[in-house]
């Protein structure tokens, strides 16, 4: 436990002592802010239209959760595909390049401890990104009702489950990212491999459109981006949890195997 903590602390410090974390958070805020602005202004235009046409029955369907935050979280999920490889790319690859790998591998630390410490550090960055997303509903809850929007009230439960889902998705992406990082000593190759893996796990779901029966379900289930959907509706389903945790376990297991293969290769 102490070793994991030591490695976690070191990785965390490196994220925040170098510009990496700040650049990631900066760009992430910029892009998600833009998402939010676009989605929200569309929502506003729609509401105004319905008001003009005196269509109260339509207005009842307009609520911030479904019309703003669900699409926001789903879009950010896709954006995570691009951001996570950048966060995880240096984790192991850079140790190899700097030759500090020799230090880690010749001190009494197990490969599990190395992998876990590093993984948890990347999770902390993901967690902060998820917290950044929470700025948007909080902003709306302050100013939304002032604007006289009838649907201005926010239901918090689905937003919290969305956040949880987004975090789990980020955790799953990171697990694949750290695996990519263990394969090479080049950060660029690491990022490209991670991006390729994530993309592959996304588009695998597209094949489900043409498939039938069981294979349709299986393909859909395998897709990385399918599983946030239920969370954004406020539902935490076992099958989604199982999926995320399986990907995390799978990624970390492969990483640990790759790192320890150094010892018997």
């Amino acid at each position: 436990m102490r070793n994991i903590w030591a490695i976690f602390k070191k990785e965390f410090k490196i994220y925040f002592d170098t510009p990496v974390a700040y650049v990631v958070f900066g760009i992430f805020s910029l892009i998600t802010g833009y998402f939010f602005l676009q989605i929200f202004s569309y929502f506003q235009r729609q509401s105004l239209q319905f008001l003009q046409y005196q269509a109260p029955q339509m207005l009842e369907h307009m609520n911030l959760n479904d019309m703003v935050f669900r699409p926001l979280f789903l879009n950010i999920n896709v954006f995570f595909l691009l951001m996570i490889p950048v966060i995880t790319m240096r984790l192991i690859a850079d140790e190899k390049r700097l030759k500090t790998y020799e230090l880690l591998m010749t001190t009494p630390v197990s490969t599990w401890q190395i992998v876990m410490g590093k993984y948890l550090a990347s999770l902390s960055v993901v967690l902060i990104m998820v917290l950044i997303v929470f700025i948007y509903p909080i902003l709306l809850s302050f100013f939304g009702s002032e604007g006289g929007l009838s649907a201005g009230s926010i239901e918090w439960m689905p937003i919290i489950t969305s956040g949880l889902g987004l975090f789990l998705a980020g955790a799953a992406f990171s697990a694949l990212g750290i695996f990519a990082s263990s394969l090479t000593e080049s950060q660029i190759i690491s990022a490209i491999v991670a991006f390729g893996l994530l993309l592959l796990f996304w588009v695998i779901g597209w094949a489900s459109a043409g498939a039938e029966g069981v294979s349709k379900e299986v393909l859909r289930y395998l897709s990385l981006l399918e599983h946030l959907d239920q969370f954004t509706k406020g539902l935490i389903e076992l099958k989604d949890l199982v999926y995320y945790f399986s990907v995390i376990f799978f990624g970390l297991f492969l990483t640990q195997q790759t790192v320890s293969s150094q010892r018997w290769r």
Binding site: R2, N3, A6, K10, K13, L98, T100, L103, L104, T107
Partner: peptide, 20 residues
């Protein structure tokens, strides 16, 4: 095996803790 982004003291602390 040095981490360029760390200070000497932080680095030695890190190594000391992973060495138990």
């Amino acid at each position: 095996p040095l981490y360029n982004d760390m200070t000497v003291n932080d680095y030695l602390k890190f190594v000391a803790s992973i060495k138990g």
